[in-house]
């Protein structure tokens, strides 16, 4: 994954609260074994409405989305983050995010910017006719000469900036993981293999 230091451009002023994962990408489109191509179905129900913000030529190709509170609530489907990426969205601004969505967005290099509701309302106005810039290094959103600071978990900020392969980082902790396994309270025994495998004579494991 490439690092992201800055996201700049037009922002789609969606503004809705409780944008759930079924709105971002309906379940029928989760029947895929790849990460690509989900953008065509992102926000399908909203895009079916005439005059919706996604069809507005002003926001065509916009890399930023602005929404109401509790963005990404609902399922854990990372397809929601993949759909946003495929749509060209690299940052979402909202008063709050669901925990699981925020994690999924982060893993895909999407910047989630949580600002207080008044700041989000102001950015929704500004976004009507002007561009925004999100500086991940300085943790600042600037637009129309105004600036709004936000916070990011320091570890997440670091990973975003450097585009780290998290699994690669964790595997460096291998000795610590092995050491934990040797002393773990829950690992004195292993679960038995599922009996279905034995009974059906199947060899999956």
């Amino acid at each position: 994954m490439n690092g992201v230091t800055r996201v700049e451009g037009r922002a789609i002023p969606l503004g809705l609260r409780n944008v759930d994962t079924d709105i971002i990408i309906p379940a029928d489109h989760l029947k895929t074994v790849t990460r690509e191509g989900l953008g065509a179905h992102a926000f399908e129900t909203i895009r079916a409405e005439p005059g919706n913000v996604f069809d507005d030529p002003r926001y065509s190709g916009a890399p930023i989305l602005i929404a109401g509170d509790n963005f990404g609530c609902g399922s854990s489907r990372e397809h929601a983050a993949w759909a946003l990426l495929d749509l060209g969205i690299k940052a979402v601004i909202a008063p709050s995010f669901s925990d699981i969505f925020a994690g999924n967005a982060f893993k895909n290099g999407i910047v989630t910017v949580a600002l207080d509701p008044a700041a989000v309302d102001r950015l929704l106005e500004i976004a009507q006719d002007q561009s925004l810039a999100i500086d991940v290094e300085a943790l600042k959103v600037t637009a129309a000469g105004e600036s709004f600071t936000f916070t990011l978990d320091p570890f997440r900020r670091e990973c975003l900036l450097k585009g780290l392969d998290e699994i690669g980082v964790t595997l460096e902790a291998e000795p610590a993981i092995a050491d934990y396994e040797a002393r773990a309270p829950m690992l004195g025994w292993k679960p038995a293999k599922p009996s279905a495998e034995r009974r059906l004579g199947l060899r999956f494991g």
Binding site: P194, A196, L200, F204
Partner: peptide, 10 residues
């Protein structure tokens, strides 16, 4: 990975 297939009662 241990697996319970769709045709198993479990």
């Amino acid at each position: 990975v241990p697996y319970i297939p769709d045709i198993a009662a479990e």
